[in-house]
Design a protein around this nucleic acid. Sequence first.
DNA 1: TAGATTGTTAATCGATTAACAATC
DNA 2: TAGATTGTTAATCGATTAACAATC
Lengths: 208, 208
Amino acid sequence: MPSSKTIARLSLYRRVLNRLLEQGKSNVFSHQLAQHVRGTAAQVRRDVMAIGYSGSPTRGYDIEQLIQSIGSFLDDPAGQAVALVGIGNLGRALLAYFSGRRPRLSIVAAFDTDPAKVNRVIQGCRCYPTDKLAEVCRDKHITVGINAVPAGAAQETAEAMVEAGIVGILNFAPIPLQLPDEIAVEDMDMTTALEMVAYLARQKSRKG
Amino acid sequence: MPSSKTIARLSLYRRVLNRLLEQGKSNVFSHQLAQHVRGTAAQVRRDVMAIGYSGSPTRGYDIEQLIQSIGSFLDDPAGQAVALVGIGNLGRALLAYFSGRRPRLSIVAAFDTDPAKVNRVIQGCRCYPTDKLAEVCRDKHITVGINAVPAGAAQETAEAMVEAGIVGILNFAPIPLQLPDEIAVEDMDMTTALEMVAYLARQKSRKG
DNA sequence: TAGATTGTTAATCGATTAACAATC
DNA sequence: TAGATTGTTAATCGATTAACAATC
């Protein structure tokens, strides 16, 4: 049972490895991979060991095999269906990112309360009215949700998601949701991230 | 010199405190604030101590004073101007979030290579062609940038930002940027976040 | 005063770093 | 074989937790 940080790094490794594969490379050393992800070689080795894959002292890691190891660790073999709630600008950007791109983890339904937005197909994804959430989630076996509604509606939307059987929520609302502990919540806090980068930028420019 | 995690938590505390203030509350105990941010009371007390503010044993923290303490710690008194590069769906969502909302940290210019998008005003923010980046950043004293361009253009865009004098970048590209250490970079990795929430959801539903 | 909370110190826990033997 | 890298173990570092005195 690796830590959630290890999970996050594995996800990133996989994307970098896929790009290296596209560039025609077949193997990679821990320090090379570390450089691409702004990490350390020891960290990479620990993470790879955690999923039970082994490298070779002279060739490092076989990229294709490592990608497959990460996949069999991170991905649900049966696939996981994702619901997006909130079809504003952010929602549409998320549809472009996650609709139909990856077979094992893909947005299969979008929801909004605005009647003008429903019953359309955006980025290949069908849009439904939010009050059909429970019904559609049941029919499509959706277990993961993305909450991209305005701040004021975020808490009640999240509760409706839980009601609909969703057990993991990617949350874009600027304030943490109050949900039962059985629900996995990951906050994408853009305000905090911007304030942090602004603070760190000021510290850096003071030094330099 | 608090850790970057402390910085992130302070940013979140401030938003929660502002909402409590709107609800008419004037003071808050560490465990109450902790509950709102899914943290611990001890953590809250440590963070507050780190910025030199003190509470009272009987009344906890004065909300208005604590907000002000956090502000004088996090915010640049002179304000920091932010540039957004990439006016797609994501960029427009970011403009809605960050354009003109907060006087001390606000997007003051947006950039895109698409001629159809420039020389307009979106969410009160003027749009420029990307090749004017250096010029506009100099004129408007911009030190912070948001990178919201498509993945393929992310690295060269980030380099142009650095060239233009930007020292802190909020990055939405799915692969880490290769930049000098003097630049503060914060990654908003939506792919990792979604994969992580999907993984954790599966673990939770296995248990339950 | 009694009671709950705060700030502070000591103990614990986990993660990172460093050192080293094993391997191709 | 020589050399660089891997996997493993011990040492260090930092952060969290627990215990306690100070305070309103």
